[in-house]
Design a protein around this nucleic acid. Sequence first.
DNA 1: CTGGTTGCAAACAATTTGCAACCCA
DNA 2: TGGGTTGCAAATTGTTTGCAACCAG
Lengths: 172, 172
Amino acid sequence: MKKSAHSHAHDHAAEPLAELTSRLRQKSQRVTGPRQAILALLREHRHPMTNKEIHGALGKGDCDLATIYRSMHLLEEMGMVKRFDFGDGVARFELVTGDKHAHHHHLVCTCCADIVEIDDCFAAELEARVAAAHGFKTVTHKLEFFGVCPDCQQAGHSHDKAKRSRRKPCGC
Amino acid sequence: MKKSAHSHAHDHAAEPLAELTSRLRQKSQRVTGPRQAILALLREHRHPMTNKEIHGALGKGDCDLATIYRSMHLLEEMGMVKRFDFGDGVARFELVTGDKHAHHHHLVCTCCADIVEIDDCFAAELEARVAAAHGFKTVTHKLEFFGVCPDCQQAGHSHDKAKRSRRKPCGC
DNA sequence: CTGGTTGCAAACAATTTGCAACCCA
DNA sequence: TGGGTTGCAAATTGTTTGCAACCAG
């Protein structure tokens, strides 16, 4: 992994790490290298990453892919990361920063897979309405937008990193 | 496959079948037994079904699972069925009825997997707004709600956010 | 006849799991 | 020390694909 000066108390990673540490302790679980590395990586990358991407970014030898899967489950349960599903059959994760911006959605280019974050969520109130209308509780929602980004619109879009939907996004 | 009286012009399945027939012809493709059977089945079942469920409902010997996967891709491309992703790693499909109700969302119980359809979509205008704000085109969206249904609430089931990730909601 | 289709099996890819070695608290 | 963790490999599961037999038009 690209090691940042993570041994100093005032390290940037201190914030999420501190929370991790204390929370893990409460669950009588451990603050291990892989877990720290994953959090550190997600702090830099501000966009959702797949487990495979995380694995690659950490340096093949540093952490096993299976461990990443296990860690993401743990971190998700603890609410430290959020799972996103863009419909291509691969899970993506983002670090949950304590403050606002916590809840947001994405605008994904179906062509180049570029991702834009949409901060304002308006569906919140709907959640309540939907819940009330059908007697459901603890209602949450998933909302993502898909479209073709400016770049891809003009350039006879070269499906560079586009690979969403195990099936071709745009039929060209 | 369970062949319904599909040779009569006034057959219930006539509506979707007729459209299928004509559209397939235009694509110089064929109206086959499996395709008719799938459409007929989706007409009855008004809820999203997984390929495996469709396969089971058609009678193991009637249509191969692979054929169902291929058919769903075709039907999806033709806009006859719509694919939904509830985040559990399994695709679900619903027949697209020509009229309204065409665009709708779901409220899924994370415990018993029961599904309620939400007809009013409010995200439509947001699509336009989001598209304009970021220069994207042909913007669409996916929105689903998750929660605990009335039945499961009392039934003791406290698995609030049951793991819909990969495995069955809650194995109890 | 003939190209689109299907069944079957093998291939794939994402994710999960069993288990022995390992390490943090 | 001991139970949570990890790496490795094998197992699962959803989905796709190669190919020869088959069928709708």
